Computed example of a mutant assay.
Amino acid sequence: MSSLHKSRIADFQDVLKEPTIALEKLQELSFSGIPCEGGLRCLCWKILLNYLPLERASWTSILAKQRELYSQFLREMIIQPGIAKANMGVSREDVTFEDHPLNPNPDSRWNTYFKDNEVLLQIDKDVRLCPDISFFQRATEYPCLLILDPQNEFETLRKRVEQTTLKSQTVARNRSGVTNMSSPHKNAAPSTVNEYQVLPNGCEAHWEVVERILFIYAKLNPGIAYVQGMNEIVGPLYYTFATDPNSEWKEHAEADTFFCFTNLMAEIRDNFIKSLDDSQCGITYKMEKVYSTLKDKDMELYLKLQEQNIKPQFFAFRWLTLLLSQEFLLPDVIRIWDSLFADNSRFDFLLLVCCAMLILIREHLLEGDFTVNMRLLQDYPITDVCQILQKAKELQDSQ
């Protein structure tokens, strides 16, 4: 470890040991990349995403409260219809009589159960994350015992997927354009997909944990529910927390990821809501902002893309909506997110990163025809994300 890296770790530790965290100082340090040693990134992300407050003294109580709240969500939302009432003193016969699988009443527990399964089936298709690493296929050290205990009334999501007789169908909330978000070098080969095998009873793979997080989020947020692409947002968060060297915190990676994901989605959810596309907070405005920034910084390149009718929707939609999570390998995505989470303007820097990505391949784009350029933008060639971030910072400083 270099002396410079040791010095950076010490700088983070100095900020994080204060009774009240100096947020601006933490943002400044995190913007240049957070060391992974000692769980620093995990802790910094929790603060930057407003999961942990700036007062250190309250961390223990807040974490305990939030983790218990998540357990309560599991108890209430991953359950077979009728069982909850039966456990509250209503006999199973009465439950079956008043509410049954064919009950057409919209308030029927069974009706809700079947609608939930439609969402669950879509989530289950999408949680085959990061085919370039084996992490998500492996078993977690901390399976959810609440769900896996056969003595409990809860039903595992894997069993619901296996047993449901509903035809697999695309959830109506899928966005036009969102369904084709995968990048060529991110697609899993068939042999890779087959590695996602269900583990023996009593074990859970990491992808199953991600599936449960997304399902609970969809249940608690019916206004947006689940939209394809959310899986790509929650994946890097969960990976970071589930690989925390602090075993005490790693044990609670699922709950901590859920709340950080919820906070992050509160900031970027407008990108996933089609009715807001053309508003000032919607994705169309942000895509146009990338092009207007490019026009200001590199008129020649801007005119070339305009001449070829290469619209920002063709590539920037995915870049912005998924926070670049499909353009780079997972470690590089995490490094980019250090800077995005530390952005005081909350993701304005992402627009500059996208603009920097265009400028860094300007010579190729100026020489290429429509087909070549679309291939470049759909499968971005530069892998040195530090170069991209440095260019984006130059653009920011020149504003």
Rank of each mutant, 00 (worst) to 15 (best):
V210H: 05
Y70I: 03
D384P: 05
W249F: 03
K115H: 10
I62N: 09
D296T: 14
D298H: 13
I79D: 01
S61P: 01
R318A: 01
S61V: 06
R173F: 10
L29D: 05
R8L: 14
L23R: 13
R160P: 02
G38R: 13
E28F: 10
L376D: 06
M1T: 08
F258M: 12
T164Q: 04
E327K: 08
I361M: 00
K17N: 09
Y302P: 01
K115L: 09
T96A: 15
L264W: 02
F315H: 11
T293Y: 04
C42P: 04
R175F: 02
M374H: 10
R212P: 01
T140R: 06
S7H: 06
G33I: 07
M230V: 03
K25I: 04
K85M: 09
G89C: 09
D338E: 05
K219N: 04
I47Q: 05
D14W: 02
F114Y: 14
D116Y: 12
S183F: 01
N373V: 07
N174L: 05
T240R: 00
L220P: 01
C42S: 15
W249I: 04
L377R: 00
I283M: 10
F370L: 14
F73V: 07
I9T: 03
Y302L: 03
Y380D: 00
T60G: 13
